[in-house]
Amino acid sequence: MRLTDKTMLSQEALKLIDREVAKYPVDQKQSAVMAALAIAQDEKGWLARETIEYVANYLEMPPIAAYEVASFYNMYDLDPVGKYKITVCTNLPCALSGGVHAADYVKEKLGIDFNETTADGKFTLKEGECMGACGDAPVMLVNNKRMCSFMTPAQIDKLLAECK
């Protein structure tokens, strides 16, 4: 096992990963890779190749297998993102209630398109697929964690102002 950089992830992060590992049978540590990558991303802001490799080594799995997971699921960021990543659902049910227009509004406010980051490094905008919250459209997800519902122009202004 190669754990080259002892300082790659904090003790708190490793503890969280251990808690995930404990959910699965002892010989199935790889099952925790999705959670471990998410925890690593929370701490690092995004998943650099060496972070993915570290997680793989920690879980005693081939780095390529961890990389496959990181590149398959949409919510992992393999490139640096802004402090606040805002994902707007523009899928059809949301679009019927303003999802696309809400995204347009954010684009105009921030002066960026999808998959771009503001010059000050504060915001990244992403186009999302169904978040399972179509009844609350327009919906936005902040940093993969906080779901914001019924986003009118006023609500969007408020959200952006809250992001310091």
Partner: peptide
């Protein structure tokens, strides 16, 4: 009983894709 958190892949709603995902693989 435990909770497993997905990370953004519609295909994991397909039951065997979901199982692959719990096993720590592409779904």
């Amino acid at each position: 009983l435990f909770a497993h958190h997905g990370y953004g892949a519609y295909i994991c709603g397909e039951e065997t894709g979901l199982l692959e995902s719990i096993e720590g693989k592409k779904g």
